[in-house]
Each structure stands twice: as structure tokens, then as C-alpha cells.
């Protein structure tokens, strides 16, 4: 079922992982193997995990994301979780969940900027204009 499947594509120098709205445990579990395999294959600067469609973040989901980010870090990559919906942010905070060493970004575009250094380039050019 498409609504439960994960897509992994390379965009710019980044691996973009898009999660479905209601991923099952097996889907989340398989994610680790697939992302790590793709990392070795494509040698990206980092991984963006787009969770903007995800409706429910429970402790299992958070733990898997935390572990995945740790594994990616061990392989030398950065992980950015992109697009956490407001209701999920509220619930995750009440539950005391976090994603370990994964960074967060408002959306995929900002996550890509973060990993490809685009925001820093923009910042220094802004300063140059002053």
C-alpha cells in the first residue's frame, strides 16, 4: 500500500527519505537497512527524513529515528528530520520524546539548505552587501 511505503531518493548531495502518513512497524524497521545501504551506495553529505505526512509519532517511532540517526552518524553522515507537524510536536514533547542526535528543520527545503551549506552561503553574501 502506497500510503505505508517509504521513498528514498538522492537530491543534490543529500539522501531524501519520505515517510508515509501511517508507517507500520515493519516499514519503519526496514527503513534503517535501506537508508544505510543507500548511503554506502551514493555517498551523500547527509540524510533528510521528511516526516511532514506522519500523523503519529510514538516511542517506537522516535526510538527508531534516534537509532537511525546514530547509525548514519557512525557512517559519517548528518541526519535532519524535516517537517514535524505541529500536533506531532505537541504530543512528542508531552511524551518526552526526542530524536537523539538528529537535527530538525521546518521543511525539506530548509533541511537541504542545512546539509548543503546553502544557508551559510546566503548569510555571508548578505553580510557582504552591508
Amino acid at each position: 500500500m502506497a500510503e505505508r511505503e517509504v521513498s528514498i531518493v538522492k537530491v543534490r548531495d543529500v539522501l531524501l527519505v519520505t515517510l508515509p502518513s501511517s508507517p507500520g512497524d515493519r516499514t519503519i524497521g526496514n527503513l534503517q537497512d535501506r537508508v544505510l545501504g543507500k548511503m554506502q551506495e551514493t555517498d551523500p553529505a547527509g540524510v533528510v527524513i521528511d516526516v511532514s505526512l506522519v500523523e503519529t509519532v510514538d516511542s517506537f517511532f522516535a526510538r527508531t529515528m534516534e537509532e537511525t540517526a546514530q547509525m548514519i552518524a557512525l557512517m559519517g553522515g548528518r541526519t535532519v528530520i524535516a517537517g514535524i507537524p505541529p500536533a506531532v510536536a505537541v504530543t512528542a514533547t508531552e511524551l518526552g520524546l526526542d530524536f537523539g542526535q538528529a537535527e530538525s528543520a521546518l521543511d525539506v527545503e530548509r533541511a537541504l539548505d542545512l546539509l548543503t551549506g546553502a544557508s551559510e552561503v546566503k548569510k555571508s553574501s548578505d553580510e557582504g552587501e552591508d
Binding site: T56, D58, V90
Partner: peptide
Amino acid sequence: SLSETTRVVTATSELAR
């Protein structure tokens, strides 16, 4: 509300798991 729904669904997920 969406926040209340997310709370209930998340609690359900924890207990079902």
C-alpha cells in the same frame, strides 16, 4: 481537535504496542 486526536491516537499506539 487535531492536537487532541493526535494525543489519543498516540496513546492508543503505545498501549496497543
